[in-house]
């Protein structure tokens, strides 16, 4: 597989803030690479550096096999990009938007009909041809934006949180489209704050505070976890009520909330009975279960581990 983006030790500062601290990543043809992490992790910054929209302060990067310092124009012209906020003309219709991006990208008018038909079939936007882009639903908007980004058949797609704020059904549909594109051999770099979407990627990079804190095939990431994970629950009580007590007991280990439960990650393997003995002082109704870690657990465990290493 050809590598479409190859970044090595990318650094970026905004004033005194270190937005990126040595990011290395790779995006391959025919695969979906995910950047997961909270807001402010540096996902958008990394994408903009790959797109040559931002200058990096250190490291090296090649995009589409060209050096991004010398071939800005080439990169900009051959990558499909969807920014974080909806960036089409809301006062133009679906058709006008498509036509505009087509004309800007391609010179051959004959191709337009074919292209348009294909994208309409792909995005199911045909019924909305004359609707103003601004009055489309969130999901529709994103499909239109993707269609516009695909206008020039890019080999590489960079999508910045394309499904944030989109309803679950449209999200699913959108990911379906991405998988179709992947089958066609397009390389996709996509960022998302949703862990369940990370599972749909072929490879993920976990980002936090400008660093990559974990990377791998999503399924493997949870399997690679060497410690053990336990889940605590007290029926009828909120997790924040007993979180601090658990933190007291398991000082030095990762204790965090997960939904209505509190999770405890231990570095080594420990017997369930040992955990039970340690927590006898708590509410007698406390339930403890051993749990297979999910991607979200892995992410939080790594974030907490980073923090305690004093790398901040």
């Amino acid at each position: 597989m050809n590598s479409l983006i190859k970044a090595e030790g990318i650094e970026k500062k905004f004033g005194t803030v270190n937005a990126l601290r040595g990011i290395s990543l790779e995006v391959s043809e025919g695969s979906i690479t995910g950047l997961i992490g909270p807001d402010g992790a540096g996902k958008s910054t990394m994408m903009k550096i790959a797109l040559t929209l931002l200058k990096r302060d250190g490291g090296s990067i090649s995009v589409l096999s060209v050096n991004s310092d010398n071939d800005k124009t080439f990169i900009r012209q051959n990558v499909g990009y969807m920014p974080e906020i909806f960036s089409l003309y809301t006062d133009l219709t679906v058709e006008e938007n498509l036509n505009f991006y087509f004309t800007i990208h391609k010179m051959d008018k004959q191709d337009y009909e074919k292209k348009r038909e294909r994208l309409y079939r792909f995005s199911r936007l045909e019924a909305f041809t004359n609707t103003k882009a601004g009055s489309l639903s969130g999901g529709m908007k994103q499909k239109l934006a993707l269609s516009c980004a695909l206008m020039h058949d890019p080999k590489l797609l960079i999508l910045d949180e394309p499904t944030t704020g989109v309803d679950p059904l449209s999200r699913q549909e959108f990911w379906g489209m991405l998988h179709e594109l992947k089958e066609e051999g397009v390389g996709i770099l996509v960022s998302t704050p949703y862990m369940e979407e990370a599972l749909k990627c072929d490879f993920v990079y976990m980002m936090n505070k400008g660093k990559i804190i974990g990377e791998g095939i999503p399924e493997n990431l949870s399997e690679e976890f060497e410690g053990s994970l336990y889940e605590f629950e007290i029926p009828g009580r909120k997790p924040q009520e007993f979180l601090s007590e658990l933190k007291q007991i398991f000082r030095g280990d990762s204790v965090f909330m997960s939904g209505k439960k509190v999770h405890l990650a231990l570095r080594g393997a420990e017997e369930l009975s040992d955990i039970r003995t340690k927590t006898t002082s708590l509410d007698p109704e406390l339930l403890v279960r051993k749990k297979v870690p999910e991607l979200e657990d892995i992410f939080i465990i790594r974030v907490l581990a980073e923090g305690s290493d004093g790398n901040d």
Binding site: R76, Y81, P83, I85, S87
Partner: peptide
């Protein structure tokens, strides 16, 4: 403001 400028910058324009 609408972000379309950024979008335009990643076109051959």
């Amino acid at each position: 403001e609408s972000g379309t400028l950024e979008q335009l910058m990643v076109t051959p324009l």
